[in-house]
């Protein structure tokens, strides 16, 4: 089973591995959501939606349904 950004908990980090879903908007990629980049979950609104992320230095918020499309490799505890 693959991890997505939606599975992250507050403060956890991961590395984006796959963005091949056709439903991921191009705008998100342009804002830095690309394979190899680290993503950290900074804050969640109630019901974990939307999610406030730091993707490679870009701070942005996306909805959980979009977050669930972005496959990541979870970073082990430092």
């Amino acid at each position: 089973m693959s991890f997505t950004i939606a599975d992250l908990k507050k403060g956890e980090r991961g590395i984006i591995t796959d963005i091949s879903s056709n439903d991921i908007p191009l705008k998100l990629l342009e804002m830095g959501c690309l394979p190899g980049n680290t993503v950290e979950l900074i804050q969640v609104a109630p019901f974990s939606d939307p999610m406030y992320l730091d993707i490679n230095g870009s701070h942005l918020a996306i909805r959980k349904e979009t977050a669930a499309l972005i496959v990541i490799e979870k970073e082990l505890n430092e």
Partner: peptide, 11 residues
């Protein structure tokens, strides 16, 4: 319509 939502959180 496909729902998508991205917002930048500026400093």
């Amino acid at each position: 319509s496909k729902s998508f939502f991205v917002i930048e959180m500026p400093s």
